[in-house]
Write a protein that binds this DNA or RNA. Structure first.
Length: 488
RNA sequence: GGCCCCAUCGUCUAGUGGUUAGGACAGCGGGUUUUCAAUCCGUGAACCGGGGUUCGACUCCCCGUGGGGCUGCCA
């Protein structure tokens, strides 16, 4: 199966766009087919330079790499495949030929109406509570006259002529059969006066020529579907299969917007989300496997994904679950992947850790408790820098640590460390000794370990006291306890 | 206004005529005889409304209601 993703270079890649791309990519991979990337830049005014690269970079980050079409080769835009070019502005003549074919066949006509006339026409229609549709003012202009005026450089567009006939029905892979009455369909502009095609013409021509089997796109295209079906009929082509995915929504159920959310993939990359987590989250927004499995790798998604399990209703983009998935995926990283993930943050905030040969021993301690890379330097800092230990944190009623018994508790902890022989310096032995010592002093284990942990890390939460002690070593640990005992 | 789409816990969802309506996230409670945003266990929480069809509807049909999309020489 050949599928495609066809973004417009008008801005950053939207998370909804990434979801659509993901679905299309999964289907292509599942069927061992091809996933194409086409750039729809037929609106010159809205195209923004640089956005093609940024869209491509985001897809590459997500590991959704096109097999054909527009790709990134060493950071540069490239095109590959037998159906190119894959950038619509480079296919202008092709669309013009097809549009003129339609004109010759009587499926299209030239329209010379000015923007002003169209505007006042629509206004009048709205006042009469009619739906704004082109009134076919120009349909009766004789062909010769239309061609003469065109030759005289009078601006005009080509409109498709919606023929009378039975309602148009079409099967959608997600929604089932859709039905549209012809009189509700507007004579859509196919070719603009600047010679560029509109989306409708370009979509039909390209997806046919590029041999796309399945058009997966957002629900916002549903109402123009009958126009596309008609165009395929005009050309005598078989339409592809269609699947319209629902929109992503804000908390108030309106269309996901910049004002209420981070919507660009770049923002999620910048926040430190792992591609596995974002993709997993996006896959689950509108699709479910039918099992209780929640964590899916890209490979598992390829095997499990299918359109008949895609939800019709729009889904609220609520990132709480995304954060949970992020934590899950951080925990699943291999040691070297985890290091690569947090490395930029370490470089920036704790560079001394990078020259530490024992860093690999410390990383497992924090991998299981952080969610984002940016938490890593702080979680590692006390291994390299003497922490600031506050009395407020050392004292903990719940643990049975009070202002009064604190010095004694730390004293006992110190002697435990002091009395532990180097050959017994293991996590198991140390913990056992603490346990025995607590018992003999009629203390709870927590009364010993809480102040110890805080004295060593200065933090409300961190890896366990014994684990940290192991890494810091006897000497440093004792030194830190001493300075905690005599603050200031 | 017209056309089209949609509707199960707060959120993401399972469910395809008979279920104690299941799971996950979040919430809450507890365990982890040491903290935590980690981990484990437990817990509360939903079929938009009204008519049909049927022995029986969350499931099928109709009508409302609510939400969304489109209604551009934007995509």
């Amino acid at each position: 199966m050949r599928t495609r993703f066809a973004p417009s270079p008008t801005g950053l890649l939207h998370v909804g766009g990434l979801r659509t791309a993901l679905y299309a990519w999964l289907l292509a991979k599942k069927s061992k087919g091809q996933f194409l990337l086409r750039i729809e830049d037929t609106d010159q005014e809205r195209s923004i330079p640089g956005t093609i690269e940024s869209i491509l970079r985001c897809l590459q980050w997500a590991d959704i790499v096109p097999d054909e079409g527009v790709t990134l080769e060493r950071g540069m835009i490239a095109q590959k495949g037998p159906h190119g070019p894959y950038i619509q502005s480079e296919r202008k003549e092709l669309y013009q030929e097809h549009a003129h074919h339609l004109l010759a066949q009587g499926h299209a006509y030239r329209c010379f109406c000015s923007k002003e006339r169209l505007e006042s026409m629509r206004k009048a229609q709205e006042e009469r509570h009619q739906s704004p549709m082109y009134d076919r003012h120009c349909i009766a202009i004789p062909k010769e006259e239309a061609e003469r005026r065109t030759k005289d450089n009078e601006p005009n567009v080509l409109r498709m002529k919606i023929p009378d006939g039975p309602a148009i029905t079409m099967d959608d892979a997600i929604r089932g059969t859709l039905r549209f009455e012809r009189h509700t369909i507007d004579d859509q502009v196919l070719l603009k006066s600047d010679g560029f095609p509109t989306y409708h013409l370009a979509h039909v021509v390209d997806d046919h020529l590029m041999q796309i089997d399945l058009v997966l796109r957002g629900e916002e295209w549903l109402s123009s579907l009958p126009k596309h079906i008609l165009l395929f009929q005009f050309f005598g082509w078989t339409p592809p299969e269609y699947a319209h995915v629902s929109l992503l929504l804000n908390k108030d159920r309106t269309k996901l917007s910049k004002r209420q959310h981070a919507v660009s993939v770049e923002e999620y990359i910048a926040k430190g989300y792992l591609p596995q987590a974002l993709l997993n989250f996006l896959a689950l927004l509108g699709w479910s496997s039918g099992t209780t499995q929640e964590i899916f790798s890209l490979q598992e998604l390829i095997e499990e994904f299918s359109l008949d399990r895609v939800q019709k209703a729009g889904a609220i983009f609520d990132t709480e679950k995304l954060d949970w998935l992020q934590g899950q995926w951080v925990r699943k990283l291999a040691p070297e992947e985890f290091f690569a993930y947090i490395r930029p943050a370490i470089e920036q905030h704790l560079p001394e850790a990078l020259v530490d040969p024992n860093l690999p021993k410390k990383l497992p301690l924090i991998q299981e408790r952080i969610t984002f890379a940016h938490e890593a330097p702080d979680m590692l800092a006390y291994f390299y820098r003497v922490p600031t230990v506050t009395a407020e944190l050392l004292v903990n009623e719940k643990q049975g640590v009070t202002q009064e018994n604190l010095p004694q508790l730390l004293q006992i902890a110190t002697s435990v460390l002091q009395d532990t022989a180097p050959e017994s310096w293991t996590e198991e032995h140390l913990l056992k000794t603490f346990r025995d010592t607590a018992k003999s002093h009629s203390l709870k284990l927590g009364q010993l370990l809480w102040p110890l942990r805080v004295a060593l890390t200065g933090r409300a939460y961190s890896p366990g006291a014994v684990e940290v002690t192991m890494v810091l070593g006897k000497e440093t640990s004792i030194k830190r306890i001493c300075s905690a005992l005599s603050p200031g």
